[in-house]
Design a protein around this nucleic acid. Structure first.
Lengths: 225, 225
DNA sequence: TAGATTGTTAATCGATTAACAATC
DNA sequence: TAGATTGTTAATCGATTAACAATC
């Protein structure tokens, strides 16, 4: 049974830890301290120890953490032992790119079905992934038992598609549209708004410059992203 | 002169507010209250008022906010009056996709130069954007006065490319690689790790399911992403 | 004036981190 | 034992939000 109350911030770092542990394991390293890990993943060592401690006492005092054991633990925690199939809703610019990318790099996630309205796409195989009509979506999601969807459709149909996804029994949506979709409470939505992120970065850059030219330039790290 | 001490969390929401204000303006709306805005952008109304207040008293008590005035204010704040040129480092899968996408939708950001090592790409124009050799990068960044770079290269050369970007005088990096690059303090790095985000989402989904099947299922929103 | 809605105070919540006793 | 490093306590920091006086 999984432990309770893992903070969101901690959960976001788990894949990062796992990836680096794999790297260490491949490199033949047997042990790692929170201090060393901290250097590599750029997370404070106390935060790392705190993060790990939510899952129990995983380390040995005076020694550090056993790389293989910790890697295996996170592998299980992150469900790396089984393949997770993901649906791609909207095979346009960004959708095609994500298909191509397909999260291949050594983690058990793959896009296994695409959906679109374009007649010329429906029934084809793109990057090894079959593309279905949006009309078949509810049915196929259910049939293929897909729990997670990536939403890369035009903004104006984002909410409609979200509704269909809910109907199809989806449990999580990675939403690349700028629309904040409304879904039942038990559905997890993670928004990734690339334009927004870039605009924020640019805002900070310009902001920082203005600060440099202003009277006082202390407190600059208040503006670090 | 720009106001000081805008919290990071507030800055991240500015593009979201701006986008919706534009929508309201296009729709002919003249005024908007924090309560109405809250419904649309899914941010608590008190948070919205607090966010706005960092920039001064932008609203009128008993009335709300003037849509056009607020839109114009954020337009200036987000530097929408001038075009920001961005470099794309690495024209592979994800890079090609971002080129195609090119952040076009009504905001003044555009990828104006691409860089890669592949001989067959160098010297070509992709989606209207010229692709240069990595060897010319430092020179071109300087020449074209590009301040922001999108890093979509293989992990193993991510740090090398970051070094070159610093050399080329870049001020901000949007890093799509899973590597946490090391750069001088004054350079802003924003990490967008798509695989990581998806893994985290899946973790929460599975976590939540386990919780449902466990003895107590209270406190469920502790696990909301 | 009466009703509406801001801007801000104060409380709360969640995340980070310094410091160190516990202990391998 | 001596040295190293965890796991956790306590302090701090940053972000959110309820509540309401101010005021349009």
């Amino acid at each position: 049974m999984v432990e309770k109350k893992i903070p969101k911030a901690t959960a976001r770092r788990l894949p990062l830890y796992y990836r680096y542990l794999r790297f260490l394991y491949e490199a033949g390293k047997e042990r790692i301290s929170s201090a060393k890990l901290s250097e590599a993943v750029k997370v404070d060592s106390a935060t790392i120890r705190r993060d790990f401690s939510y899952f129990g006492a995983l380390g040995k005092r005076g020694y550090g953490y056993d790389v293989e054991a910790l890697m295996n633990f996170f592998s299980k925690t992150l469900n790396q032992d089984r393949l997770t199939n993901v649906a791609l809703i909207g095979v346009g610019n960004l959708g095609q790119a994500l298909l191509n990318y397909n999260f291949r790099r050594n983690n058990n996630i793959r896009i296994s079905a695409g959906f679109d309205v374009k007649e010329e796409l429906i029934g084809t195989i793109q990057q090894g992934v079959p593309i279905y009509s949006i009309n078949e979506m509810v049915e196929q999601l259910d049939l293929q038992q897909i729990d997670v969807a990536i939403l890369t459709v035009p903004s104006d149909i984002a909410q409609d598609m979200a509704n269909k996804l809910v109907e199809g029994g989806i449990k999580g949506i990675m939403n690349f549209t700028p629309i904040r979709v409304t879904v039942p409470e038990h559905i997890r939505v993670h928004n990734v708004d690339l334009t927004n992120e870039l605009q924020t970065l640019i805002y900070f850059i310009n902001y920082y410059q203005d600060m440099e030219n202003s009277d006082d330039d202390e407190d600059l790290d208040d503006f670090m992203l």
